[in-house]
Amino acid sequence: MNTLVRWVSAINVLHRQAGHPPPGATTDVKNVLASARRLNSEVPRRMQPVFLRELRRALGLIDMNTHPAAIRGHRDWAILVLGFAGGFQRSELAALTFGDIQLGDPLGIRLWIRTARTVQMGRTASKLLPFGKSPDTCPACALLRWTRLLHYIRDRKLIEVEVFLLGVSLSKHICREPQLELQTFDQKSPVLRSLRRGGHVQDTRISDDVVNDVVKLRLKAAGMDPKRYGAHSLRSGFIAEALRGGHPYRAIMLQTDHISSVALDHGQRDSHSYRNPVLDLGV
């Protein structure tokens, strides 16, 4: 049912952009969808959002200093923090290349999104990775720690990589330091890469499923039920936290690249930023 609704929404968007009335707004289509909902009336399954406190708990259990676990640790750390702070879809994360990284913004690092959806719609979108307050959850630092490690792995011997990892500190920012190593990568090469056993980094990008697997694995290690969480939990967690902080829908949609605010309504409920009137009924 959810897939059908998404298809109708996508068709509506394309029609509006072409200057035509959206077919999904007609009475016939609405009646068909209403009938389908009645026939398929089970409760929709939604992944739970990951809130910042839960994200911190999961990050705190990742080995960032011991080879080879720390290789996977740095990549997974980047997936979790970028996915949360950027409100990314899993496909957007997996598709990132070095050519999508733009430095020079006084507020942080900007990542350009070039997925099938944005290309098909003839538009570009970008997300800001801010220079965060805390080094451990700073999105810019999470990205740059990983890219710096990629650069080091490519040019150094194993013992040098091990020493480098031992010296990694999560208590200081690196996001405002010169990032000359970024210029040494092929601009078409993937940022988030597949790994083999032993911490061997591949030249291929991760799949969308890897993002989902990383979220489940790291949250399970932190004592959370992996069946309740997935890749979308990072995106919905960002939305819920932003709404809890009082940010308007429009500002949130600029980061998540949502076309419609309907999806943010779920985040409003998840954020618990309003008081349910039933609590005041005296029952």
Rank of each mutant, 00 (worst) to 15 (best):
N2P: 01
V5Y: 01
R6A: 13
W7D: 05
A10Y: 06
V13D: 07
V13M: 05
R16A: 07
P22T: 09
A25F: 08
T26E: 06
T27I: 12
D28V: 14
K30Q: 14
A34E: 13
A34F: 07
L39M: 08
E42T: 12
M47I: 03
V50W: 08
A58M: 09
D63A: 04
M64P: 01
M64W: 08
T66K: 03
H67I: 00
A70H: 00
G73V: 04
G73H: 02
R75S: 06
D76P: 05
L80M: 11
L80A: 02
L80Y: 05
V81T: 07
F84Y: 15
G86K: 01
F88P: 01
L96K: 00
T97I: 04
G104L: 03
D105F: 00
P106H: 03
P106R: 06
G108D: 03
G108C: 01
W112H: 06
V119Y: 03
R123D: 02
T124E: 13
T124F: 05
T124D: 12
L128C: 04
F131H: 13
D136L: 14
C138P: 12
L144Y: 08
R148A: 12
L149S: 01
Y152M: 12
R154N: 13
D155G: 05
R156L: 09
L158H: 06
I159C: 11
E162L: 04
E162W: 06
L165F: 03
V168F: 04
S169F: 07
L170C: 10
H173P: 01
E177H: 11
Q179Y: 05
L180A: 10
L182K: 10
Q183D: 13
P190E: 15
R196Y: 15
G198R: 04
G198I: 08
H200R: 15
I206L: 13
S207V: 10
S207G: 15
D208H: 11
N212C: 08
N212A: 02
R218I: 01
L219V: 03
K220Y: 10
A222K: 05
A222V: 05
A231V: 02
A231G: 03
S233T: 07
L234K: 05
S236V: 11
A240T: 11
A240S: 15
H247W: 13
Y249H: 11
M253K: 04
M253N: 05
Q255N: 03
T256V: 03
T256C: 02
H258E: 01
S260W: 02
S261T: 05
V262W: 01
A263Y: 05
A263Q: 08
S271F: 05
H272G: 14
S273K: 14
D280T: 12
L281S: 08
G282S: 08
